[in-house]
């Protein structure tokens, strides 16, 4: 004891066992049911896309940090999460280079150039998706049917009256389990709910954003989404369709790019829901989830500035 001096640091001297990498690893675990569903419905090509997305993200992060002479932080699992989410947002028919280019862009341009984890203000996976959408729209909207990989429209495209595609709509059940056309990781509401539930139980995310997001979409599409006037919308189809579950549980909840207070998280979910519905019902694209989240990412600093907790003992004036 005399030989080695005791460590003198300031309190607290206890730290919670939950670290950044433990949280990120939990997100990866929570994404596995959706990956499993993707492989069931779209075959091994789904697996390929996810593997390439993750690999590219990790290599890009390690490579960039090496070149920039910064500490390599791929051990925190955040690149793995970004790679998975990007791949989940691609069509199953995507060529092999799409996840590779997308992940590399997500990590290098949308994350590292802003200063790395914690500094980026928009969700890297969604930024990359938007970039791919703008650069290779054909590849990004080539949908295939589950099981037999025949080209088709997504249920959301079929849902929008003005596109005129009165195509055969999948049943609620098919949409719930995920046996419909769509992005690799977004079709199975069931699998995403299992994963989202896991994140809630493990307290990795709080309920505020997903509940507000999904709730808002349900209410607004019910009120405004029908062809027979107000309150005739098929809200259930709207919440099961497209990237809503994936977005609400896994992307709008991204720590770095969403508000830090519980009230702010509610506003985040609400805003995402409103924007999603506006884009779905009135925008140029059938799907609005990812743009809605990106827009709310931009609004996050503002939300954090104005939505602050009430300091203990203070009486709110005004």
């Amino acid at each position: 004891m005399k030989s080695e001096l005791p460590v003198v640091t300031s309190s607290p001297h206890l730290r919670s066992p939950v670290t950044v990498s433990a949280l990120m690893r939990d997100v990866v675990i929570a994404l596995l049911p959706a990956l499993f569903a993707a492989v069931v419905f779209f075959g091994e090509r789904a697996m390929m896309i996810v593997a390439l997305g993750v690999l590219s993200a990790v290599v890009a992060e390690a490579g960039y940090q090496r070149l920039a002479r910064r500490p390599v932080t791929v051990g925190d699992w955040s690149a793995v999460v970004t790679g998975m989410l990007l791949a989940f947002n691609l069509p199953p028919s995507a060529p092999w280079w799409l996840p590779v280019v997308g992940s590399a862009f997500a990590i290098v341009v949308a994350k590292q150039l802003f200063g790395g984890l914690g500094q980026n203000f928009i969700n890297p996976a969604l930024a990359a998706r938007a970039m791919l959408m703008a650069s290779w729209p054909a590849h990004m909207t080539a949908w295939i049917r589950p099981f037999d990989a025949v080209s088709t429209a997504t249920p959301l495209a079929a849902l929008v009256p003005k596109t005129g595609v009165a195509a055969q709509l999948p049943t609620y059940w098919e949409m719930f389990v995920g046996a419909t056309a769509g992005c690799v990781g977004e079709t199975s509401a069931l699998a995403l709910l299992v994963g989202g539930g896991y994140l809630l139980v493990r307290r990795v995310i709080s309920w505020h954003t997903p509940a507000a997001f999904i709730g808002t979409v349900a209410v607004l599409t019910w009120v405004f989404g029908g062809v027979d006037g107000l309150f005739s919308g098929d809200w259930l189809r709207h919440i099961l369709a497209g990237g809503l579950m994936l977005g609400a549980f896994f992307m709008a909840t991204d720590y770095v790019t969403s508000p830090v207070t519980p009230k702010g998280k509610l506003i985040m979910g609400l805003g995402c829901g409103v924007l999603t519905v506006i884009i779905r019902l009135h925008g140029g694209f059938p799907e609005g989830v990812s743009y809605a989240i990106l827009l709310m990412n931009l609004a996050t600093p503002l939300i954090d500035r104005y939505v602050q907790p009430r300091p203990f003992g203070e009486v709110r004036k005004k």
């Binding site: 460590v7 914690g118 720590y255 770095v256 907790p309 203070e314």
Partner: peptide, 24 residues
């Protein structure tokens, strides 16, 4: 006793929820 290496803040909001004084 080992001081753990601090990482950048990931804005997870846990400290906000934990603060009994309602601070950020």
């Amino acid at each position: 006793a080992l001081a753990q290496q601090p990482q950048p803040c990931i804005r997870c909001g846990r400290c906000v929820e934990a603060c009994p004084m309602g601070l950020l």
